[in-house]
Design a protein around this nucleic acid. Structure first.
Length: 665
DNA sequence: AGGCTTCTAGCT
DNA sequence: AGCTAGAAGCCT
């Protein structure tokens, strides 16, 4: 190997000054910094990969030649070198096209992909006037994907950057500044830049302004697996968290057990005895959806589930059967969610009526018990547990412990699986109703007259639907619908917010909270105005300033923390570089937003609705298969049957179907 | 013990 | 379609 010898480039005539031969074009490499040609065969360490040839620096420019195990280049490489040179010399191509072609060659991307990208690029070009290509990753020449910013203020795709680092490079591909080891080993995504790029992409048709699409709106499938704290929540933890993803595919008004086919996540269904940390987690598995309320139901339709949480002192728990108290009768004015004190009578309305409908129809009701039910032997020690299917056999009103009337319900278990507390190896068998002493004083007693929908089948020896379950009135992914509702709201809000406000939000300095002026990006990917950043360390930087004097002062290294995180950014501070690319974009967006501000505020909602419609997902409905005539649950009650509701439901179902078709196309 | 938020049924 | 009050939570 020639690595001990002096390395020399080609002379003005193209002859290698070391071996004196004039190499063919494909046997030479041009330095990306000084543009001097070099004879590849005479290099001590030719670039290991073709990717690195694009950014190749000659031994003179790179300073410390990398130790390389690579020998002379093989034939295949030479061919590729030739191909690259051919691209370089093709005058019909623009610089960007050249870069893309080079990239295709090097990465071995298939032509089809290249075409797709080309289409993407054409799309991009319309907003490139905002970005002006200034943000493009120097490696792939595209807008950075998962952008990372070097301390010298240059932006790259995370993957491109990692590739570069993987080749042993420790200098910025753009300006040759040293990349700190920490940045090299743990590059951080610059989330502000992510916003910049998203904004730019979204503003393509309506330069810098456009309806600022709310990209952080979450659909059920995109919701996190766990409950999460929203941006506006002041308190951490689950006290005021939003629910995470709903894992099961049953509609929110689904009665009865949740079976394997509605559990795509695990394919086992919700099993009796299953436990969850809290009500939010319980909600995610569909056993009981409301995360505060004890009863899930609709007054004209029935109740699907209840929670026993010890919220009402009148409750009486006997495991396989229990006496449940209705909701209401309490003053929740102010900001309360609960109030133990009862101040008026409960009535059979709302959720209490829903329970009565379930009683009347003999619907299966899911029951969960919470650890908060302290007076019951059957409550779990921790969290919330699914205890299976119960039926409401009777309901009535009585004067409760606090002196006001409460609604009462007799729940009796009727599940095919044994209860979590029993040592039986089989589920429930029909049992005689327990004697209820308080019934003597009860008023408004209601008993089921018709045969129950959910009953024990003597032949099958198991509990099952004896009558078709009530058809669902809600789409399966009601959670999605709710999300979309919220998203619509958010979009509307985005319309009324000025671009300036959004700029402020997305590109504000973490110190002064204003739109950044001369932005600097720390290696830990936090962004500040240069002046704010410097001011934060005024008086502290002096110690390090004398380091250029001599190496004796090196021992005095002063640890300085990023204003936003504990990262030591003392090295970064020493040579503060403005992220000019980011600055350019902010400036341009600022300017254009001022021009368009009025127009933005007046934007019609049509655009929003359109995008909404497209984002809509048709909802299948497993229950529609059982569309037999449903007996009206309230036909013997004073209220009129919910005719209008039924019509509305079928109408919506039709709409949903067409949407599914549309979505498939 | 107080107070924050989420979710939604049931109204306008 | 939009709003509001009520809901058996949860955390400091």
């Amino acid at each position: 190997m020639a690595h001990d010898s002096v390395q020399l480039p080609c002379d003005g005539d193209g002859a290698c000054m070391r071996c004196k031969v004039t190499p063919l074009a494909e046997e030479t490499l041009t330095c990306s910094t000084c543009a001097t040609p070099w004879h590849v065969a005479c290099l001590a360490s030719p670039p290991e990969t073709l990717a690195s040839t694009l950014q190749w620096q000659c031994p003179d420019c790179s300073g410390d030649p990398l130790p390389s195990a690579a020998g002379a280049l093989d034939g295949t490489s030479s061919e590729l070198f030739a191909a690259i040179r051919a691209i370089e010399s093709d005058e019909s191509l623009t610089e960007k096209e050249k870069a893309r072609k080079r990239q295709e060659l090097v990465s071995g991307r298939v032509e089809e992909d290249g075409d797709k990208e080309k289409k993407g690029k054409e799309k991009e070009s319309s907003f490139l006037d905002v970005l002006d290509g200034s943000l493009n990753c120097s490696f792939c020449m595209l807008l950075p994907d998962r952008p990372v910013t070097t301390p010298c203020g240059h932006n790259f795709c995370l993957k491109c950057f990692q590739k570069w680092i993987g080749q042993g490079k420790r200098t910025c591909a753009k300006c040759r500044s040293i990349i700190p080891p920490k940045m090299a080993s743990q590059p951080r995504i610059n989330s502000t830049l992510v916003s910049v790029i998203r904004m730019a992409k979204l503003s393509k048709s309506n330069v810098a302004a456009g309806p600022m699409k709310v990209y952080h709106f979450v659909q059920n499938q995109d919701r996190p697996d766990k409950a999460f704290t929203t941006e506006r929540a002041q308190k951490p933890g689950k006290a005021n968290a939003a629910s995470g993803k709903i894992f099961v595919t049953v509609p929110p008004d689904h009665f009865g057990p949740i079976t394997a086919e509605n559990d795509p996540a695990r394919n086992q269904g919700v099993l009796v005895g299953e436990c969850w940390e809290d009500r939010l987690e319980c909600r995610q598995w569909g056993a009981h959806l409301p995360h505060v309320a004890g009863i899930a139901g609709q007054s004209n339709y029935g109740a699907q589930s209840v929670a026993l949480s010890g919220g009402y002192e009148d409750d009486e728990d006997h495991g396989e059967w229990f006496l449940y108290t209705g909701s209401g009768g309490r003053d929740l004015s102010g900001n309360k969610r609960t109030n133990k004190e009862q101040s008026f009578d409960q009535k059979f309305e709302k959720m209490n009526e829903a329970l009565r409908v379930s009683c009347k129809m003999g619907y299966p009701v899911r029951v969960v018990r919470s650890h908060k039910e302290k007076r019951s032997s059957y409550a779990p020690e921790k969290g919330v547990r699914y205890d299976g299917i119960f039926r409401i056999e009777k309901c009535w009103r009585k004067v409760g412990i606090q002196g006001f009337k409460v609604c009462r319900y007799l729940f009796v278990r009727c599940d095919n699986e044994p209860a979590p507390w029993t040592s039986d190896d089989h589920g429930d068998l029909p049992r005689p109703l327990p004697a209820i002493p308080e019934l003597k004083k009860a008023t408004d007693v209601f008993e089921r007259k018709e045969s129950p929908s959910w009953d024990f089948d003597e032949e099958d020896n198991r509990w099952r639907w004896k009558k078709p379950p009530p058809p669902s009135k809600k789409p399966v992914n009601a959670a999605d619908l709710e999300e979309r509702k919220r998203a619509r709201k958010a979009i509307r809000q985005a319309h009324t917010t000025t671009v300036r406000e959004r700029l402020l939000k997305e590109f504000s300095c973490l110190i002064c909270r204003q739109v950044m002026n001369l932005p600097v990006t720390t290696p830990c990917a936090h962004n500040f105005c240069k002046s704010c950043f410097e001011a934060a360390f005024s008086g502290k930087t002096a110690i390090r300033e004398r380091s250029k004097g001599g190496r004796t002062l090196r021992s005095q290294k002063n640890v300085l923390h990023c204003p936003s995180c504990p990262t030591d950014i003392s090295d970064f501070l020493q040579n503060l570089q403005v992220n000019r690319e980011l600055m350019g974009v902010i400036e341009s967006l600022k300017q254009k937003s001022e021009e368009n501000q009025d127009a933005v505020e007046e934007l019609s909602e049509e655009q929003v609705d359109e995008s909404e419609e497209n984002a809509d997902i048709g909802s299948g409905d497993s229950e529609t298969a059982q569309k037999t005539k449903n007996p009206d649950p309230k036909d013997d009650l004073q209220n009129p049957p919910p005719d209008s509701d039924q019509k509305r439901t079928s109408k919506r179902m039709k709409v949903d179907t067409t949407q599914v078709v549309a979505d498939c196309e």
